[in-house]
Amino acid sequence: MTDAALTVNPAEPKPRVGQSPMRRAWLILSRDKAAIGAFVVLMVIVLACLAAPLYAKYVAKSDPFRSNLSGSIEIDGKAEKIMQASTTGLGLGVTPIGPTWHGQYMLGADNQGRDVAARLLYGGRNSLLISSAATLICLVLAATIGISAGFFGGWVDMVLSRILEVLWAFPVYLLAISLSIVLLSQTIVLGPIEISSGSLALPIVIIGIIFVPYIARPVRGRVLSLRESEFVLAARGLGIPRWRILIKDILPNVTTTLIVYIPIMMALNIVTESALSFLSIGVQPPEASWGTIIQDGQGLLYTRPMVALAPGIAIVLTVLALNVLGDSVRDALDPRTKMR
């Protein structure tokens, strides 16, 4: 649904003079307050998620991957059941404990009696891991395809561009959903590697693949225009071999384009991952992610809205920070590339 979010105008190539663009960008970024703020927020989130096992052990004092449906905890000297059966009227329904705002069950429990706060941190690890790994896959694939298409031209370009166009026209989420459904119902064996249905590799690969067209197209455009630019033409005129031109002139330029995409792609991937997990075709239990926790919370929306609220807020914060960072990185690295 955020197709447009990634449409970037292929910027015209321009020879850079003086400082290396990376260095200059770094200088600009280090003076950008918004960028620094976003970076700090991100780091806090990442560190908190990395500290998940410590939180579970010392603060939550429970295993967030084990159902705890019959247990109870002590709050202010009073014993409270984690799953509280209704005692009024007909006695229908069982409600998990709500936010205690103490160490244990700070944000309450989900319908398995597990500590939501601890799961939030563990889920964040997966959400961040999936989005970064998928970003990496996406950028590598997109660069390969985009550079091949742009640099070699001819029928390679024809074929690749057509494929990208077809994928472009198909709704991303529907593509992701169909891939997930088919892949989830079987174990994939690729030579010695066996990817079982519960593996995190599945959402990573799926999310990594679906956005490739959105990056590959601008990369191709960039390479195309670079190929015709003066300095490349001059280099060719001097008889420098093509592979050297590719490595020395084209690759660094494309890399700048790709770096601009990293934060935005991560943001997009977090949202996509959570959507897939929300539809229960992303991360599979017992693993958690922010999306699966929202899904758990959907069934408790009326009684314990915190289960769905907390992971949503975590997503919004992270994605917001990534987007702010993305804007700043783009402005710093490539002021002419308009972000949409």
Binding site: I294, L320, N323
Partner: peptide
């Protein structure tokens, strides 16, 4: 912020 909110979560 609008861009950053997952649509299904906003809906919920």
């Amino acid at each position: 912020i609008g861009v950053s909110m997952p649509v299904f979560w906003l809906g919920e």
